[in-house]
């Protein structure tokens, strides 16, 4: 009963109205536009590993919050969206082609703009900007490659990459 009535409960209990502005923002973020097709069937939950292993993560609830435009819950620091394992099972299961994982990634993109994204995310971007790679080359990596008969690691033309970061 609880799950079925969540949508109405959420509105009644939280005294929040739908934030259409945030929904518009989500619609204009790549991958976020399909969130409105969600009819809360919960097919995304059954095989979601993060939901299986934690009560704090439920893709259907995240989609419900997206339908209501609950910007605070979804894009605050340490938002539950960061617990998604990116396994793409919900993408397979959703009968409405909402692709919940892509909606979650769109929400992460919004967090990045608002500077509420997890610090690891920023580190990865900085690393790619600086060296073109996510993993730092060390003397150990060079030594191991040599030992295995592999060539030196090729440098990445980071000047080209820098041009691509600008909108």
């Amino acid at each position: 009963m609880g799950k079925l009535c969540d949508f109405f409960h959420y509105q009644l209990m939280s005294s929040k109205s739908i934030n259409y502005q945030f929904k518009k923002k989500l619609n204009s973020t790549l991958g976020g536009e399909a969130h409105s097709y969600c009819y809360q069937c919960g097919a995304c939950v059954g095989d979601c590993p993060a939901a299986m292993y934690s009560v704090d993560f439920n893709p259907r609830e995240i989609l419900l919050q997206a339908l209501l435009g609950d910007e605070e819950a979804l894009t605050k620091k340490d938002s539950p969206i960061w617990n998604c394992t990116n396994c793409y099972t919900c993408y397979e299961r959703c009968p409405q082609a909402v692709r919940p994982v892509e909606v979650i990634i769109a929400l992460k993109n919004i967090c990045y703009q608002k500077m509420t994204a997890s610090p690891e995310v920023n580190q990865i971007v900085e690393s790619v900007k600086a060296s073109g790679r996510t993993v730092r080359i060390t003397s150990l990596s060079d030594r191991r490659r040599k030992e295995l008969g592999l060539g030196e690691i090729k440098s990445v033309p980071t000047d080209e990459l820098k041009e691509l970061f600008e909108p």
Partner: peptide, 8 residues
């Protein structure tokens, strides 16, 4: 992580 920053 990179996809989480900006899909475009």
């Amino acid at each position: 992580f990179f996809k989480a920053t900006d899909k475009l």
